[in-house]
Amino acid sequence: MPIPVTIADDSLMSRKAVRRAFPIEWEVDITEACDGKQALAAVESGKAEVLFLDLTMPELDGFGVLKYLHEHHTKTVVIVISADIQPEAKRLVDSLGAFRFLQKPLQSEQLREVLFEVGLI
């Protein structure tokens, strides 16, 4: 059974970069979200066992998504992929229960390591 994953990023190029970085053998059913609200909708409808989350997005930003998921004790594994890599952003992301913080541009090797740690591959 493919795993339902959601890629939430307002940039088409970055969503493509995440897709490209997925290990080929990883069986996934991919949903794309262009903002935080769409990301939460994907989580609610069971399309995001894993959520790849950008921080700077319209409507609801990544921090808002994390906060909601944190408060609702959602089991979604969140991997933040961000261009804002300042210490403060990392701290906030950690405190909101994201599994990992990866920096853009995304390296496929790094993503593979994280997926391995979570036990997804």
Partner: peptide
């Protein structure tokens, strides 16, 4: 345009950091 903005975002993120 989206791609350029995102490339800029990522580069600026590194500069800001």
């Amino acid at each position: 345009r989206d791609a350029l903005q995102e490339l800029m975002n990522i580069s600026m993120g590194q500069a800001a950091n």
